[in-house]
């Protein structure tokens, strides 16, 4: 039996990382932790896509998924920043208000 290719290992790692992140978002209640979880999930999805781009054993990797991930990274960081700013705004307004 030949060794499984490295890219497959990373693809599987990507699957499990995204699943772990997804679980964090769904099962946690604290917002900061959910945001960190969403970022872990994002990394997992991107890792899976990069690994899939390297499926062909020879030749260069597929540049189209690479472009997709470059875009995805920017979307993820934008959403993260926006959520953190919203969270901070809520925190700053907390004084004297009911937190429900």
């Amino acid at each position: 039996m030949s060794l499984p290719p490295g890219a497959l290992l990373y693809a599987l790692a990507g699957v499990w990382i995204s699943v772990i992140g997804l679980r964090g978002v769904l099962a946690e209640e604290e917002w900061f932790r959910r945001i960190v979880s969403a970022n872990v999930m994002g990394s997992g999805v991107f890792l899976l896509l990069v690994a899939l781009a390297r499926r062909a054993p020879d030749g260069p990797p597929d540049p189209v998924p690479h472009g997709m991930i470059l875009t995805g990274l920017v979307v993820a960081v934008s959403a993260t920043a926006l959520m953190l700013a919203l969270l901070g705004f809520l925190h700053d307004q907390q004084d004297g208000e009911d937190d429900t």
């Binding site: 997804l22 969403a38 998924p65 997709m68 959403a79």
Partner: peptide, 27 residues
């Protein structure tokens, strides 16, 4: 603001799930 936070989180996660599917279909 609270609603916006919730909205953005669901959008991000839904987007990532969709993207995962796109990755598989593309491959």
């Amino acid at each position: 603001i609270r609603a916006a936070l919730q909205y953005q989180m669901q959008a991000l996660i839904a987007g990532l799930i969709y993207l995962l599917g796109v990755g598989l279909i593309y491959n």
